[in-house]
């Protein structure tokens, strides 16, 4: 009964619905696209979801990040969204990971398909190498201003084949350029539709989809393998820990994440929750990650040393 409108649709049917029920999908990043895509997957009846995010809900998230409400502010996104999704579809098994995905923990993502809803190129390079090595399909999505992008990867070509020369530090973020909530919904819809096609064994897009919502223009670009691609030759710089950044600016606010060693939260002053300790200057997670409000990367590192140590 719950899925009757989906099962009656000829391209899915009862067989497709059963395939969705047997599927396990990971959503990496639970910001704008991630929260929306997780909701669509849960409503569609995907059997198991792994939801991974490193951040907490803030007031400025509510403009575009689905399901979160004012009561969630200050809580970790993964747990907040799990609570909301359970009220939408209690049949879906949900595992949450409150982590900053890196080469040390990505093996926790054991799944049929990964939806990239992250906000940075380093994470996408890591996901790309992990999926290439383990032959897992993944779907890249991105949004900024009034533009959005979606591209499937299934080892015919990889993220590095196309984006190898991109310099993460030079790209605009939603913090610096803004983003409309309407483009988020379009891109999330395309991403989850591609996911459903993959999971129900339908043909799916091998083209990069680029959409601008101000002029309603959709462009499709053919992706192909780059014969010089290092990842396609099995060289995994991010997965093997040779590349990646332990200090990153988070999208959406003037906050830097610094990864340090595990620390004893007991020696710090602040309000403790299940996952972190928070005070006026920083939020420190159990795994040693700290979120620090600062004007620059250098100032964030200085504050980290001052309050938490080296």
């Amino acid at each position: 009964m719950r899925y009757s409108r989906q099962e009656i649709f000829s391209k899915i049917g009862k067989e497709g619905q059963n395939l969705l029920k047997k599927s396990k999908v990971a959503v990496i990043g639970l910001g704008a696209t991630g929260s929306s895509s997780a909701e669509l997957l849960a409503r569609a009846g995907v059997g198991e979801l792994i939801l991974a995010d490193r951040d907490i809900v803030e007031l400025n998230n509510l403009q575009r990040q689905s399901l979160y409400n004012e009561d969630d502010i200050g809580n970790v996104k993964a747990d907040s969204i799990k609570n909301h999704l359970k009220k939408i579809n209690s049949e879906v098994k949900i595992k949450t990971l409150v982590i900053d995905l890196d080469y040390r923990n990505i093996n926790e993502i054991k799944t049929d398909l990964i939806l990239d809803c992250s906000d940075n190129i380093d994470t996408r390079n890591l996901i790309n190498e992990y999926c290439h090595k383990n032959k897992i399909n993944w779907i890249y999505s991105g949004v900024i201003e009034d533009n959005g992008i979606v591209l499937n990867f299934n080892n015919d070509y990889c993220f590095s084949c196309i984006f190898e020369s991109i310099k993460a530090d030079l790209l605009g973020t939603c913090d610096t350029k803004g983003v409309l909530n309407t483009i988020v919904k379009v891109i999330s819809g395309i991403q989850v539709n591609e996911a459903i096609k993959i999971l129900t064994k339908q043909d799916y897009s091998r083209e990069m989809i680029y959409f601008n919502i101000s002029n309603n223009k959709l462009e499709k670009y053919k992706a192909k393998k780059n014969e010089n691609c290092k990842v396609c030759k099995g060289i995994y710089d991010y997965l093997d820990g040779r590349k990646g950044n332990d200090v990153v600016k988070l999208c959406g606010r003037g906050v830097y994440q610094i990864k340090g060693k595990k620390i004893d939260l007991g020696r710090l002053e602040g309000i403790r929750t299940k996952y972190f300790l928070v005070n006026d200057n920083f939020t420190v997670f159990n795994d040693g990650r700290a979120l620090i409000k600062a004007e620059s990367k250098e100032k964030a590192k200085t504050l980290y040393s001052k309050y938490i140590g080296n």
């Binding site: 704008a32 906000d119 190129i121 992008i149 973020t173 939603c174």
Partner: peptide, 9 residues
């Protein structure tokens, strides 16, 4: 065509 890369999520 020159297409800006989108990183935000």
């Amino acid at each position: 065509k020159i297409i800006p890369v989108i990183s935000g999520g």
